[in-house]
Structures are given as C-alpha cells and as structure tokens.
Design a binder for these strands. Structure first.
Lengths: 335, 335
DNA sequence: CGGCTCTATCGAACCGGTTCGATTTGATCA
DNA sequence: TGATCAAATCGAACCGGTTCGATAGAGCCG
C-alpha cells in the first residue's frame, strides 16, 4: 500500500503539504495541487483510515447499537441511517447486543475505542450505573426507541402511550370489555407507556381492568407464548388480546392456533409494531405501527448534525416524538 | 485516557517492557509483572485498539458482510459467529449491502481499511472483476451461502440441488405434475442449483417441465409477486408452486390470497428457507430449511482457525456443504 | 529599496501502541 | 574470579497519518 510519504516523494513536496492538500486544498497552490494529484494517481494512494483516526482522534464511523438487527423496525432505521451517512462520507458499523445490557456495554465501549464519530443507540439498560456510563461518553449520541429517564441525550421515538391507547379505544369501540394486555419488561419505557395508554383508556371508558388479564410477555417469544397460554386457560376468557409488541402478539396468535381458538371469531387480537410478512399472516393483525422511515431519517440527520457542525455538538438534547399510525387488519371483530 | 507511557513511568520500566508484559507475560519477570499490573490498575490503562491495529497491521475485528441482515438465515449465522468470536476476544462488525454489489465492495474495502482480522462474506457479485477483487484481498475470508465459481476461498453452504430436489420429489409423490418453479437470479449459485434440483428430478420422474411454469422471481418481493401473478393468470394453472426461496414463495402466497386462491385446496405451495414467524403463517408452508446454526458454527470456527493459527492461514480452501432438512407443513395437498 | 504582510511550504512533534536488535543483569561453571 | 550464556529489559525505529509553529518567498507600499 502506498503511503503519504510515497506521494510526497514522487510529487517532490513535503508530507505535510500532501496532507494539507488533501484536507484543505484551498491553502495549496494550483501548481503543487496538480503535482500531488498526479502523484496520488500514480502510486494509487488511499489514506489509511486507521492512521487518520489515530492522529485525528476521531474516525468517520458511526456506531449503530440495537438489541436485534433482525427486527424490521431496527432494520428500516438502520437502512435510513446508512444511506444518509454514506451520502455524508460516513460509514455505519452495526452491532447487535442480543438485548443483553452487558454485551451492549462492551460493544459501546469497543465503538468508543474505535473513536467513532457518533452513536445511534437503542438503549437496553436503565439503572443508575448504565445512565452514568452513557453520560460519561464524550461522543455525539442519539438515543432512540427506548426513552431512559436520566439519559440527557437526543431521543427519537414514537408516542407509545398513544399507540396503546389507540388500539384499546379501537377494541372498546368494537364492543370489547374483557380486554387482555400482554406487557413488556417493566423497566422499558416503551412497555410501560404502552401499558399506561391501555390502562388509562380503559379507566376513562369506565371499564375495569381485570388483573388476571394483565400478563407479562417480556417482549420475547417464549415469555409471550407462556403469557398468552395463561390468558387462554382462564375460565372467564378475554374477548380480545392486545400485544404490547409484535413478538408477544404473534406468540399469542400461535398459542391460540395451537389450542384451537379462532381469531377473530373466538378472540380478537391487536398489536403494536409491524412484522415482516404481516400481509400473509392469517388473519391480518390489526396494528399500530411506527413510522420507521421518518424515525430513521430524524436519527440520521440529528446525529450527522451533531457530528459535523461545531455548534451542533453543544446544542441541548432534544426529544423527537412521532405519532404512530393505525393499520386495520381483520383480527378484531365486533362483539 | 491513560497511555502505555503513563504506565511505564509509574511502574518505572520502559514502554517496551510494558508492551511485552501485555502481549507475552511469560517473558517478563514476576517482580516486574507485578509492578506493571499495579501501575495499570492505578492509572486505569486500557490499550487503544486503534493504535494497536495500526502498529500490528491487524485488528481484532471480524467483518460480516451480507445482503440482508434482516433475513433470519443471515441473522442466525451472525449470532453464531458473534458468540464464537466474542469467546475468542474478537468483535464482529456487521454490514449490510442491501444486495448491491457495488455497495458490498465499498463495504469490504472499508473493512479491509480497518484491517479486520477476517471476513465472513456472503458474496453478491459474480463477474471476473469481482472475483479478482476478492482474490486480491490478503485476509482470511470464509465465503458462505453463495458459491461463486472462481473464488478460491473456504466456502460454507447447503446442498441446494438437494433442497430443490427434495421438495420436487415431495410434490411428485403427492401426485402433482403441473409444478411451477419461481426462480432466483440466474447468476446466483443457490438459485441455479435449486432449479437444477427441481428440473432434474422432474425429468427423472418422466414429467415434462412446462416452460410457462418457470418464472423469474429474482429472490425479491416485487419480482416474486409479479412472477406469481404470471403463474396464477394462466388458464392451465399449476397445481403446485415451488418457491426457490422464502421471499418469492411468500410473495406467491400473498398473490394467491389476493386473487382468492386457497392454499393448499387450489394450489399447493412449498419453499426453500425458513422465515420468521412461519409457524403463524396460514397455511404452514412446507419447506426445506438450512441448518443455520451448524452453518454459522462452521463459519465461525473456520474463520477463527485461519485467523489464529499460523498454519491455518495457509491451508488450502475447503468446501463445507451441509444437507438441508425437510420440514413438513400443511401447504401441500395430495392430488 | 527596505519593511511589512500574506501565502505557500516545510520540519518536527505527535497520536499510542509494537517490534526487534542491543544491552544489562544475574546465574552457572571452569 | 573471570568467562559464558540465558533471561530480562531497554531504546529507537516504525505503523501512517495530522497539526502547528517556523521559514522562505512573493507581492505591495511608501
């Protein structure tokens, strides 16, 4: 590999002039610029990003940290960020923590070690230790999905209260009263907000929330399946199930199918968040979806703004909260 | 951040001794080792990975390059690789080319620039230019999924001919004769092999392959949908459709549902490769799946072997081809 | 023509490690 | 006690860039 010194030698100028020509061409004379240009072409010089990062103390990489890159929600956001970053000569490094806080932390530390220019982070931690860890990072960070109380960073996400409330209201309008809710982990902001949207809408409508109808699905497949089973074996069964995310709702659908319940004839089902191939899942699940493209776009712009503009770096953190969208399916029937 | 020089000063030894102590403790005396250990703890020293990579000419990162991280096939492999790499103090950097060859190339180049220790690559290119590009990379590489003729690297994948043949035989046994096949891109090894498995099995069974029943689905959703529609509007319709991958098959299911065809009553459907939530898709699609865990495990071990052991680096490339597995669903009926 | 200001270029230090040949230390043996 | 040799440690060069103060030269003015 050709180095900058090869170029300098061939162009008969100093190494620092070549470096200057590359980073700030206006400050180098036309004649010299031309010599350097030719030399670069002749030896096929490409600057070593590692050496640049070391010297500059900053790389052109953006870290993307989520719990599950396979989730289409994160996938869409990743794509948006990647496209935008690529347009601005930055490169996205994707890491997947599998939802484990300690692994996420190790990955963030690694990315910091790589002197990434910025981080797009869907936080999975929530305790004081974690908050301090994030606070201590001296890098532009845009958090998304999970709003963690105490983290003073830009946040981009959806109105989860509204999401829960919308589906609840929909079911109420269809005449349902015995509505069950499969929750997510109580430490997750999305989970609690969605539940709050459900519970408050119920109360406001004067409908009692049956504690037996609130089961914990942990946002995971196994827990969601188990939670759904607990609902289905009750004698006084719910007439509708609301899944706090796609995973628990589809686990519930599976449980229903396995036990022989028909959806929506026997039990209605609704969920928050889309899933790949939802269009071929029978019945099509009624859902509230997040505007992933808009979220991704905001994350990308906000992060690049902080990275690129000097004053962008010191702007106070801001929250961007988007409204979710109702997507009717045929998994909810009138009772 | 504390540097190695801070450690050296505090421990009252030279910088090179500290470096040696870190990389090869056996060659440093107990006494000195202890001093250094204390100094490291005192100043909170952590080696800068960037500086290490620059000096060593090699980092502890592994590049994972695929066309679609959202595909559970790649997701499973990624997870296996990640777990194994983490156990061996390596860190996986995921990149997604969205199936675009030029972007994949840019990403590989970037990863090379990062001096990654090795690459797990699901190639998307196939022309001479691409082959030379890959050949020119002086880094351990394990290719998977697509076997590209001309690339002299380790390859890990499934027996795609067998996969196509298995499903074809299954449909033949159920009495189907008018079997349609939705293909993938003709430059993809997986696509041609699966088709070959289909076609030869048909011919061996003495069944003519109707050219109208071979449509190109490009392994994509839009092309698959269109291809399926072309099948469904024919007067002499197929009694069964075989999708060369999950995407085209599910696109076909969607097309069937939209036009009002019932599966499997009107048309049977089978596919190669699993998809998330296949268990709640009605009907459950009969499929042949790849052993993603085993594939991922082999990829991980092979790559780490080449990275770590000196002789591993020079071993001749090897192919690892696993047999796929038949997973019955209820999307194929006897005719 | 001397003095002054700009502009263009350069040299050296630096980022934070690794590596390897050279040197010191200490033990062993004649 | 001095020679020999292995083990321990060190110094300097290096990886490939960036940065900034210093310097040389060009252009302008009085």
């Amino acid at each position: 590999m050709a180095t900058i010194r090869d170029v300098a030698k061939l162009a008969d100028v100093s190494v620092s002039t070549v470096s200057l020509a590359l980073s700030n061409p206006a400050r180098v004379s036309q004649k010299t610029l031309e010599k350097i240009r030719k030399a670069i072409a002749a030896v096929g010089f490409v600057a070593d990003p590692l050496a640049q990062s070391l010297a500059r103390g900053r790389s052109r990489m953006i870290g993307f940290v989520v719990g599950n890159v396979g989730n289409p929600f994160f996938g869409d956001i990743r794509r948006e960020l990647e496209n935008y970053a690529l347009d601005h000569e930055h490169f996205v490094v994707v890491t997947d923590s599998s939802g484990k806080t300690d692994r996420e932390r190790a990955m963030v530390e690694h990315l910091i070690g790589l002197k990434t220019a910025g981080l797009a982070l869907a936080p999975s931690g929530y305790d004081q230790d974690y908050i301090e860890f994030i606070a201590g990072l001296n890098v532009p960070i845009v958090c998304f999905d999970q709003k963690v109380a105490g983290i003073e960073r830009d946040f981009v996400g959806s109105d989860n209260y509204l999401a829960g409330a919308m589906l609840t209201e929909h079911l109420l309008q269809l005449g349902h009263r015995r509505i069950a809710f499969i929750t997510g982990p109580s430490h997750m902001h999305t989970a609690t907000e969605r539940y709050r949207g459900f519970a408050e809408t119920m109360i406001n409508a004067g409908v009692d929330v049956n504690p037996n109808f609130i089961v914990d699905g942990q946002f995971t497949r196994t827990a969601g399946y188990e939670a759904a089973m607990r609902l289905l074996i009750q004698h006084e069964r719910p007439t509708a199930i609301l899944g706090a995310n796609n995973t628990v709702a589809l686990s519930a659908l599976q449980a229903m199918q396995e036990l022989g319940f028909r959806c929506p004839e026997d039990i209605s089902l609704a969920m928050i968040d889309n899933v790949q191939w939802s269009s071929v899942i029978t019945p099509r699940i009624t859902m509230v979806v997040q505007d992933t493209l808009a979220l991704g776009s905001i994350i990308a712009r906000r992060l690049m703004h902080r990275i690129r503009s000097p004053q962008g770096a010191v702007e106070p953190p801001e929250d961007f909260v988007l409204a979710p969208k109702f997507v009717p399916g045929n998994s909810c029937r009138r009772v």
